[in-house]
């Protein structure tokens, strides 16, 4: 029956990310706290989990012309360098320390969600969901 629990946690995370709040903020703590997964494993699963939804969302957005194509290359250029650096640090860090660091990051994101001012018509579709 463990698979049912996994579908449910995926479902909950998906609903929340579909509503415009980063799905990783639910999935990673859940995998870490309830499923006792190592922090790196939980983060890796979140990265993988993002891929299928992102493919659907990006292709829809591209058709609708929502993607600012001119902005992509400057952002991705050093983004890839940052991704390599961040990932290498993460996979080489001891898991309990990474878990604590993630906790501080999550605390900051929680405060942001709590205090942020609501905009009119915030989000409108699944395709708003960003990791």
């Amino acid at each position: 029956m463990a698979w049912l629990l996994h579908i449910i946690i995926g479902l909950i995370s998906g609903i929340i990310s579909g509503m415009g709040i980063g799905g990783g903020t639910v999935l990673i703590p859940a995998l870490s706290i309830f499923f006792k997964m190592e922090q790196q494993t939980a983060q890796n699963i979140n990265l993988l989990y993002f891929i299928p939804t992102a493919i659907i969302a990006i292709s829809t957005h591209a058709k609708q012309g929502n993607i600012e194509k001119k902005q992509l290359s400057p952002l991705i250029l050093l983004g890839l360098a940052g991704a390599a650096a961040g990932s290498l640090i993460a996979v080489n860090m001891n898991a309990p320390l990474l878990r604590k660091l993630f906790g501080f990051f999550l605390l900051a994101m929680g405060a942001y969600e709590f205090f942020r001012k609501e905009k009119k018509s915030e989000g409108s579709s699944l395709h708003e969901s960003v990791q």
């Binding site: 980063g22 790196q40 979140n46 940052g82 993630f102 990051f105």
Partner: peptide, 8 residues
């Protein structure tokens, strides 16, 4: 951040 925390 995305690499270090696998999200965000």
């Amino acid at each position: 951040a995305n690499g270090l925390f696998g999200s965000g």
